[in-house]
Amino acid sequence: MEQTPFDPAKIGFADNPEPRCASLLILDISGSMSGEPIRALQEGITLYRDELAADTLARKRVEVAIVTFGGSVDVVQNFATAESFTPPALATRGDTPMGEAVVISLKLLEDRKAEYRQNGIQFYRPWVFLITDGGPTDATSQFWTDAKAKILQGEEKKNFSFFTVGVVGADMDRLTELSPKRAPLMLKGLRFRDLFQWLSNSQQSVSQSLPGDQVQLTNPAAPNGWAQV
């Protein structure tokens, strides 16, 4: 075989980190989620991880963090790719400090973005998903005020896309108040699996997208979608 002057074996390729798609899940694990709801949510997250792990690009690029709120606010999973995280076991307890959860979560996200920038890692617009079956028990606190302000600022500057999802029983008015720029979605029943399937499909598309591509997301509220109209 003729020797090529441009032999890939002799040419060095730079080893750059993969661009990242940060996916931040803020999950209500308050008492009311006990039983079927928390079981279905748990299953949904496992499906989500498995779907991402099965996609060659998404498993290196999508980084998932999970913050739960129920009584207290806990970072149960810091940003990690699907290859390297095990869905945490979720147990329900306590009330619903939603405002505090949002503030802590968005700080976690900002810290991660700062790390990306420091290390020259490119990233896609981060996704934030807040899932709740109730209303905030800290709505009179500074946390709630700060949460609203930070979400508004983030959406206006296009720093992230903040989705709120209500499960049966959720206070949809509070969710609208929290994130007015994006209408809250109500989950059909406990179809967390469908929600997370949609999320992983969407993020797989984003992971492959190149500048100038339009990533078409299927409408969650379409007839076969996971959200009620």
């Binding site: 441009f6 060095g12 730079a14 980190p17 290390n119 890692i121 500048p211």
Partner: peptide, 24 residues
Amino acid sequence: TDGLQTLALNFGTRQAHVPFFQPM
């Protein structure tokens, strides 16, 4: 074009990847 930039540049250090360009 950007199709090659992650192979030819080091983003962490903002440098050209010399082992890519030297043989070229």
